[in-house]
């Protein structure tokens, strides 16, 4: 069996072909980092569609790779491809939103310190394995229905109204459960720090 160890983060350089990579088969599920590398150029395209810029897409994919390296120490994921695509999408959306606010809000603060941040390049949020563990555990502690609602909202991309219809409950209750989930995760992080 061929195994390729990639020690550096992937670039969006298309000269590295997908066929050059072999997903390791000695594990129950493909390794997240290997999956990431194997889909590198499609991940860049997905990020570029959200951000409208190849350069910014590359920054986001690099950031996502670092986060995948943390996540793989914490989670074993059944469908790593779906997971890494969602991760890149989440980060691209975060960067995009942040960039729409950056020049108006956050740059003012940074300029005050004499370190203006160029608009459109939001700084990456550092997320460690401890935070991932705490939040995963906090979500696991939620009542099953609350967790299901949160997953439908956060990962499933459904609106509160849609979820209310799907589950036959009021939108107010759905809103309450999403807040409850976030508040519980926040408490878990705060009690550890």
């Amino acid at each position: 069996m061929r195994m390729i160890i990639i020690s550096k983060a992937p670039s969006c350089d298309p000269s590295m072909r997908q066929e050059d990579l072999t997903v390791r088969k000695d594990e129950q599920f493909p390794d997240l980092a290997d999956t990431f590398v194997a889909h590198r150029s499609q991940l860049c395209q997905a990020a570029a569609r959200i951000l409208g810029s190849r350069d910014r897409a590359e920054d986001v994919v690099q950031d996502a790779y670092l986060k995948v390296m943390e996540a793989k120490t914490v989670f074993s994921v059944k469908e790593p491809a779906a997971y890494v695509f969602r991760m890149v999408r989440n980060l691209a959306i975060d960067h995009y939103r942040r960039s729409t606010l950056e020049s108006n809000v956050f740059a003012v603060e940074e300029a005050g310190q004499g370190v203006p941040s160029p608009a459109g390049t939001p700084e990456a949020i550092s997320i460690g394995r401890q935070e991932l563990n705490l939040v995963a555990r906090a979500l696991g502690e939620l009542p099953e229905r609350t967790r299901r609602v949160f997953e439908l909202y956060r990962m499933g991309g459904h609106t509160q109204r849609e979820i209310a219809k799907m589950l036959g409950v009021s939108p107010t209750l759905v809103n309450f459960m999403i807040r409850d989930a976030l508040n519980h995760c926040r408490s878990a992080l705060e009690s550890a720090s």
Binding site: Q28, F29, K67, A71, V74, F75, S76, V77, K78, E79, A82, Y83, R86, M87, N90, L91, D94, R98, V105, F106, E109, I125, I127, E131, L132, N133, V135, A136, R137, L139, G140, E141, R147, F150, E151, R154, M155, A181, L182, C185, R186, L189
Partner: peptide, 29 residues
């Protein structure tokens, strides 16, 4: 701004946690 940044970070972290269906090895208590 502080609350927004905190919420934004938490939102990102929750997005990195696989769903209960995706996790083959959920963290144990």
């Amino acid at each position: 701004r502080k609350a927004y940044e905190q919420a934004r970070t938490l939102w990102l972290v929750t997005g990195l946690v696989p769903t209960s269906d995706e996790q083959s090895d959920p963290p144990s208590d």
